[in-house]
């Protein structure tokens, strides 16, 4: 499951190469906020090293982390769907090296080439589906005393 959502496994080589031509190497020190809930989703990243966590703003307490992302994983998918607004916040919890992509550029490429657009949409959809599935399993609270809530 997880193994099928990393970029290498999810995009055909030709499309992967095309996408990677848009990539910029970036690095963030630990503690960098990559994006904030409600802001415009104008970029996305693929983590090379380090850990990025996704969190939710809750007034009066430190933002609870809902998921952490590491090597090979896509950070951000809201850039792919209107209204292009981040649903969560993201923070580097260690020094992070990543590939950064400009969302508008990639969207333009997708619009210009339907086949490439479909491949990217499938990849992003797969990531979202996988995260939804994992979240649903976590929702079961499997490690609770009775396996899945009592």
């Amino acid at each position: 499951m997880t193994s099928t959502t990393t970029l290498a496994a999810a995009l055909p080589a030709e499309h992967r190469a095309r996408l990677m031509r848009q990539a910029r190497e970036v690095s963030f020190p630990a503690g960098t906020r990559l994006f904030e809930e409600g802001r415009r989703a104008d970029r996305f990243w693929i983590v090379r090293t380090g850990t990025v966590v996704l969190d939710v703003h809750v007034p009066g307490r430190r933002a609870p982390v809902v998921e952490s992302l590491g090597h090979g994983e896509l950070v951000g998918w809201s850039w792919h769907f209107t209204p292009y607004v981040w649903q969560l916040g993201a923070e580097a919890t260690s020094p992070v090296q990543a590939w950064e992509f400009d969302a508008a550029e990639v969207r333009a490429l997708c619009a210009a080439d339907a086949e490439f657009g479909r491949a990217v949409a499938t990849w992003v959809g797969r990531v979202v589906a996988h995260r939804l599935h994992a979240t649903r399993i976590r929702l079961l609270d499997l490690y609770a005393p009775y396996g899945s809530g009592s």
Partner: peptide
């Protein structure tokens, strides 16, 4: 997760990566 947690947050299968 909880405050002060140093590890990952997510399903255990994601650790296989």
């Amino acid at each position: 997760s909880a405050d002060g947690w140093w590890g990952h947050v997510g399903l255990v299968t994601t650790l296989l990566n």
